[in-house]
Design a protein around this nucleic acid. Structure first.
Lengths: 141, 141
DNA sequence: CGGCATCCGAAGTGATACTG
DNA sequence: CAGTATCACTTCGGATGCCG
């Protein structure tokens, strides 16, 4: 086994890493987070978690996304095996997107992130406010 | 309650969203993911999960990070209330970083992401390989 | 030691126009 | 409908130099 985990519950008592790999690699976790962390992926995955969607349906369901970014987002998800793309050679063309089982297994994590975000959203907003008040000149945002 | 969740386990049977908020807002989940998805935050959090670290200790523990990016990363974590920063006015100066309880609570999620990444890393790599083989001209990477 | 200021290239994103 | 192509703008990240 080249990866290890240790649950961390209490501050200042932990000595072993939460995540590590043999040569300090991240075993793809940052790849995943970098993908989920972009502007649209999570919103598209959440919409697809509800069922099969056509291209325009997705675009209408994710307000503000451009055609270009929707294309890029679903392409990358397809490349990673999280989304399947089915082309029906009709006129007009019809393309259906659907989460794969792998993609569906990720919705659990997305939900866990949403839970955490929701639970601690106020705390983070408060922390940012007081930090900004204490550092009015800072460019960090 | 303005946020709702529905577990999704089986494909093509889900009709309710995994994550939603009243006006289609993401309740901070993309904020969080965008932060965790950057190049260094997770690595810094993982290192700090092991205990208190000084600035240079952190930099040595996270190979490849520049002074600038380490500063930005810990500043943003501090602003969000995930990391505390303690300055000892000694000569030379000594600054200690430590996860707050809020930050520690996030290590659970990081571990869940790492678990998922580890479990499905091979599947994703394989999927990317065959996609790249099937789309040799594509710029998507 | 622990930063900050500056410059530069790379990547992400948006708007627009065009196509099978 | 479902894209592709191009351009412009913004953000991210690395390198370097300076400072208390």
């Amino acid at each position: 086994m080249s990866v290890g985990h240790t649950a961390v519950t209490t501050p200042a008592e932990e000595t072993r890493p939460v995540v590590w790999c043999e040569e300090g690699v991240d075993c793809g976790i940052r790849d995943l987070l970098h993908r989920l962390g972009d502007r649209w992926t999570v919103l598209v995955v959440v919409e697809l978690a509800q069922g099969v969607r056509r291209f325009r349906e997705l675009q209408r369901a994710v307000p503000g996304i451009s055609q270009r970014m929707l294309t890029l987002t679903v392409r990358r998800l397809e490349r990673d095996g999280l989304v399947s793309r089915t082309v029906h050679p009709t006129i007009p063309p019809q393309v259906e997107y659907e989460l794969t089982p792998l993609g569906h297994s990720l919705t659990h994590l997305v939900r866990a992130m949403a839970d955490w975000s929701y639970d601690h959203h106020d705390a983070i907003v408060d922390s940012r406010q007081s930090w900004d008040a204490a550092n009015p000149e800072s460019e960090i945002r």
